[in-house]
């Protein structure tokens, strides 16, 4: 049963009594929250996700709730907790949904060491995964959103999960986090794309989340073979330039963009080496999404 089959009332009831249990890729989540905006966020962006039954094993028990005492009423705030542990300082109450997305990133990045986790968007076409590692501001999420809105399968806009067991990329298809100008860029290119609540003045500026395509969510159990490693860099008015990057340098750049390369030790070194062996590596500079899309469509043939 999909989350979209729940009414808002039913969803709020689940969030308030024992938690809403659902599946994202290979992960199972239980989310509890008394905050009505969280229900709106889920209804807008998580409709295609499968609900799971009460007996199923849960990877991440999460809670979004106001802190106790004064901050429940005066300039209200929200806390994210995982198994009762609060990893972050509270945020303003209106950022609860964004906090859920960031909190879930933290859960996966800190507890999924069966994968080499790379800070990278990853999309797939014709069975081949294109991985876009990048620091915030590099334009990876914008590029990812544009590709996904053009029919590419979304595996993740934030973290690439490379299996240590088989070297494949496993999906964790969640809403795509867009920031600042990217929100309007994607809205103008794809007016039909569903965007959740846009929140101003977060630590990352203005943030909005784009609903992942239903087909990507439904393919959440199907891994993809890595094919291209592309380091994007958005630069105003730049030409579209795809430049080959040496494999050894690509290795170092991916290691720098990995959440757990250092944790995994030699296993991480070998997995990353195998990824580099399997991938063509490039640096990519762009300012025009239409040219970028045409180029990647050609590369995916």
């Amino acid at each position: 049963m999909k989350l979209a089959t729940l009414s808002k009332k039913g969803l709020i009831r689940s969030l308030n009594s024992g938690g809403l249990r659902f599946k994202i890729g290979a992960f199972t989540i239980c989310l509890s929250s008394p905050i009505a905006e969280v229900a709106d966020h889920l209804l807008a962006l998580y409709g295609a996700f499968e609900l799971i039954d009460d007996e199923a094993f849960i990877d991440f028990y999460t809670l979004l709730a106001p802190p106790s005492k004064v901050r429940r009423y005066f300039r209200p705030q929200v806390n994210f907790s995982f198994d009762g542990f609060i990893p972050f300082k509270p945020l303003p109450y209106n950022q609860a949904s964004a906090m859920f997305e960031w909190g879930l990133n933290w859960c996966i990045a800190n507890h999924s060491h069966q994968h080499l986790i790379i800070h990278a968007a990853v999309v797939e076409r014709n069975g081949r995964a294109f991985i876009f590692p990048g620091t915030p501001g590099s334009g990876k999420s914008t590029l990812c959103a544009a590709l996904v809105c053009s029919g590419w399968r979304l595996l993740s806009d934030e973290m690439t999960l490379l299996s240590l067991a088989d070297g494949l990329v496993y999906p964790v298809p969640r809403p795509i986090s867009l920031k600042n100008r990217s929100i309007d860029v994607i809205r103008s290119l794809h007016p039909d794309a569903v965007m959740g609540q846009v929140v101003n003045d977060t630590l990352k500026g203005t943030v909005g989340h784009l609903r992942p395509p239903d087909s990507s969510v439904e393919s959440g159990a199907i891994p993809a073979q890595p094919a291209k490693l592309i380091f994007p860099k958005y630069q105003d008015a730049s030409k579209t330039e795809l430049t080959p990057l040496s494999k050894a340098r690509a290795f170092l750049k991916v290691a720098e963009n990995s959440f757990n390369y250092n944790v995994l030790g030699v296993v991480g070194f070998n997995s990353l080496g195998a990824l580099i062996d399997a991938s063509d590596c490039y640096e990519f500079k762009y300012s025009r999404l239409d040219e970028a899309l045409a180029l990647f469509a050609e590369l995916a043939r």
Partner: peptide, 22 residues
């Protein structure tokens, strides 16, 4: 541990956890 690609390689030292581009 070493991995070689064309005229470069990366060397990983398990004792220090450091990776070097050579």
């Amino acid at each position: 541990c070493c991995r070689f690609w064309e005229d470069e390689c990366v060397v990983y030292n398990q004792l220090t956890g450091s990776t070097h581009l050579i």
